[in-house]
Design a protein around this nucleic acid. Structure first.
Lengths: 153, 153
DNA sequence: TCCACCTTTGCAAGGACATTGCTCGCGTTT
DNA sequence: AAACGCGAGCAATGTCCTTGCAAAGGTGGA
């Protein structure tokens, strides 16, 4: 498939905000028939341009009130070291985001915890147990200013 | 409404992964009738326990290939300073996440950019223009290891 | 230029789906 | 024990999703 055209982008923009909108209303908003809209949507999904849909759950309702940013340095940058670390970090369900970084630290993690005690457990049982780690720096989020799922198109 | 029960949690777990699943299939998977499932879902949405649904767009398709973590320090911690900074940062569409932090820096930002040139523009036109900023530290993500929408329940 | 071909659209129909009213069962309260 | 509230299932109605089909528009080759 080629690059998405203007109508595809309009569909994506709407679905980014209202992922469970009905195909009928989506079609109406972008000015297509239901069938054409349905087929375009299927194509976008087939090409993984839209890779999934996710309910956004209130962290408050789930009791995940604490967000922690963790900077981690490893003992080396060998491929094997990185691979082992990454395989381990993927197993921790509280780690929402993990990037290999340029700069002072090797990895940056975003970790969700219910409370301080919960974070202490995560730190002890998961983060400290990660292989090849030589330095962990935890910073606590005091307040959320922005949390968007995607760039505003 | 009270706290979500086991069935609510099961629904949330499924919708977190497959936000556009039909009510019929959702009902079947959690072992409810369609009507009961539909009503529970409406209640979860009404109580903002499920606060929305979002399509996940491939950043590649959208040409946002670059993720930058930005640490920012302000010239002070006065309420007015923080408020003005936050109002300004909210206007930048490339800032996906922004937290007020404890620790060395005051704010941490996650910024999406198409390429280095695009980031240079964002840095010049948006980040440098934010009020009360005394220090900006940009770290580039080399590779994405994890990017989950929510904690694995 | 013309025709064949490919793509994408709209329309229409059939089947699937979502929602609503109703009733029933269960647990709690008075 | 009776009354009440909560949440479930069933059934019906209206809406929605998908598929086949024909036509319009664009493209390339003869």
């Amino acid at each position: 498939m080629q690059q998405p055209d203007a109508i595809d982008l309009a569909m994506m923009r709407i679905l980014q905000q209202e992922g469970r909108i009905s195909n009928a209303e989506l079609a109406q908003r972008v000015g297509l028939s239901q069938s054409a809209c349905s087929r375009r949507l299927a194509a976008l999904e087939a090409d993984a341009i839209i890779s999934g849909y996710h309910a956004r759950l209130s962290n408050k309702a789930l009791d995940y009130k604490m967000m922690v940013i963790v900077h981690i340095s490893l003992s080396g940058q060998f491929a094997k070291t990185l691979t082992e670390f990454e395989a381990a970090v993927k197993r921790c369900p509280n780690v929402l985001v993990c990037y290999l970084m340029s700069g002072e630290y090797d990895y940056i993690l975003r970790v969700a915890a219910k409370d301080l005690e919960d974070y202490e457990r995560i730190h002890r049982d998961w983060l400290s147990a990660l292989p090849h780690v030589v330095k962990i720096n935890s910073s606590f989020a005091l307040r959320e200013i922005i949390d968007r799922p995607n760039v505003g198109l």
